[in-house]
Design a protein around this nucleic acid. Structure first.
Lengths: 344, 344
DNA sequence: TTGAAAGCGCTAACAG
DNA sequence: CTGTTAGCGCTTTCAA
């Protein structure tokens, strides 16, 4: 049984394809009776319009692309989930691609998506991306892009972000509020802006509370891994045996710290408090459970698609986009790795 | 600057679209000189064929669909990653959809994908799925399906699976080999076949080693969660204070057990060994780290796409598919929650 | 209220 | 070696 087409329906009913098409689309200028006949036949034959033909005709695919720098990743999984579910509500399907933190992959994927005639692209930059010609090219081809999380200020597009500085400030302030006086910070690589911003937030909180900034309390991860946290924890204790707080730029590293502290019989949170960032699932698994800054992946995915959908519609209607920056709020999730805030 | 089309290239060069098309496709019957001119112009204009038009013409989209019952999930993330990366190598892009363990969603998604003219679908069943008409319908529409992990024996399609029985047997045998004599099993719901098979594997291992099966040593999770493991751990100890091994059907639950044991000062692995299943990331985070059965998500994703691609090609060429069942091997990853195997 | 016709961009059979 | 032509399935004027 070959798939039914408009033409077949038309032939069976003895009317033209134009009429069938209009009937199916509920055009006003169709005789009720005719419409009914068409609808019934379509239903009984289980007719489905050919999306490729529709796409070609309407110059739209009802597909968007989503590029993340990593897939097996708590935060990005949530983003993907948020995007897919929201897209579906507007009749969009989502092609997912993984740049795997590679600039070349990111370039290739962007092009692949544009070549597939997606109606828009959601993009989180790889850490390796330092130039943006490939992005501008796609935008110039008329494909709207919305960036999220790892963004570039140099691209004129809608963006969905968190305020990393503010979030890190709050995290550090939280440690101070629970009595920490000597707080180490574990930061990431020099490159991604998020790492830099979290570091700045940490510094600002210290300064706000008149705690002198001590550069030897800042540790840099060579890689984003559990093992790095594990390694650095020992180093912190060696360098500063009176440290009483650690703010790590990401949960995984904080979990490594926690593990090492436990092994070394350091009391957490009483002797040293530990604060993570991102609120990944693992925060609930560690011993003790890890306090963290909630980074709302799902919501960001939702907002990102909504922004893209808006941009797609506007671009089509008005020929150009007015980018919008959307900031999604973060909040601290206190668990057992930090002390309670004394309610004064 | 509107996108260049075949027609435009042809007009500029003063030749026909057919010739341009063939030149671009590297047909043998094109004059070298002409070919060169076409290629150069195409490159300089950055010509890209319109995928929608190609798709309509060739009746293929070069897109496949992937439906998983959950996205924020270690195992399925790995599957997605494996599928996407493998698909890319064959020029395929992947639309990802999340049934969220809902039968209705699964039905809808299957239809959406078929309506979008995907060339094939990769599917892992939701736990709620008990009938399969919706799947057969799609196959009847000529869209090949490959099932993975959560499969149905009632569907005639290629499948990529692990041998849950064998894996669970090996896990239990491993506990026995490291000296466990009274092993509790925490199993999942009655529904998914994987749960049942793991339970059977557990029983077979006991029987093989002449350990009488004791039904009171089998605990059932109400939900697949950390909290359930935490809850059940206490119960196990209360019911059987001489238990010396726990085999949980999934890591998350095992992690809950570990946590409770640690809190209750039960020595793991010396007093009780704990074995998980799936080898999720969290196995490396728990205290102690969790021994587990490695479930190769990435490889399964790779194999699943390869099988689908094969089926797509064969279906196109021969009009029908000969389904293939692919079993991906599992293996035990010993960590600190089980004793060492004594090398005798 | 309906239908004829054009055309989205591409490919392939066939003729020259 | 190249071009003509037909057509994939659908939508949308425009004319009847």
């Amino acid at each position: 049984m070959p798939k039914p087409t408009l033409k077949k329906l038309a032939k069976i009913l003895g009317i033209s394809t134009a009429t069938v098409s209009k009937a199916l689309k509920n055009y006003p200028d169709i005789n009720e009776h005719t419409k009914k006949r068409v609808l019934e036949l379509a239903a009984s034959l289980n007719y489905q319009p050919n999306a490729l033909a529709q796409g070609l005709r309407n110059m739209e695919s009802k597909i968007v692309g989503l590029i993340v720098p990593e897939i097996v990743h708590d935060f990005f999984s949530n983003i993907i989930d948020g995007v897919i579910r929201t897209a579906e509500k507007s009749g969009y399907l989502v092609i997912v691609l993984n740049s795997n933190e590679s600039f070349e992959q990111e370039m290739i994927h962007l092009k692949q998506l544009a070549d597939k005639n997606v109606d828009g692209i959601l993009l989180s930059l790889s850490d390796k991306t330092t130039q943006h010609k490939h992005i501008k090219q796609v935008i110039d081809r008329g494909v709207p892009i919305v960036m999220f999380d790892k963004i570039s200020k140099l691209i004129k597009s809608s963006k969905v972000i968190i305020d990393d500085q503010k979030a890190a400030f709050n995290a550090t302030q939280y440690l101070i509020d629970t009595g920490c006086k000597k707080i180490a910070h574990i930061r990431g690589d020099l490159k991604p802006q998020t790492t830099i911003d979290r570091f700045i937030g940490y510094k600002r909180a210290l300064s706000k509370n008149n705690i002198p900034f001590d550069n030897t309390l800042v540790y840099r991860c060579k890689s984003l891994s559990f093992g790095e946290g594990y390694r650095i924890a020992k180093k912190i204790l060696k360098d500063h045996n009176d440290v009483d707080g650690v703010f790590a730029f990401t949960d995984l590293v904080a979990a490594g710290v926690l593990k090492r502290f436990t092994e070394l019989n350091i009391q957490v949170p009483n002797q040293v408090s530990v604060m993570g960032f991102s609120d990944w699932f693992l925060t609930k698994i560690t011993t003790p459970t890890l306090s963290s800054v909630h980074q709302p992946g799902f919501e960001m995915g939702v907002k990102a698609f909504e922004a893209l959908n808006r941009d797609i519609v506007i671009l089509k209607k008005e020929g150009k986009i007015t980018p919008e920056i959307i900031e999604v709020p973060t909040y601290i999730v206190p668990r057992k790795s930090t002390r309670k805030i004394s309610n004064s």
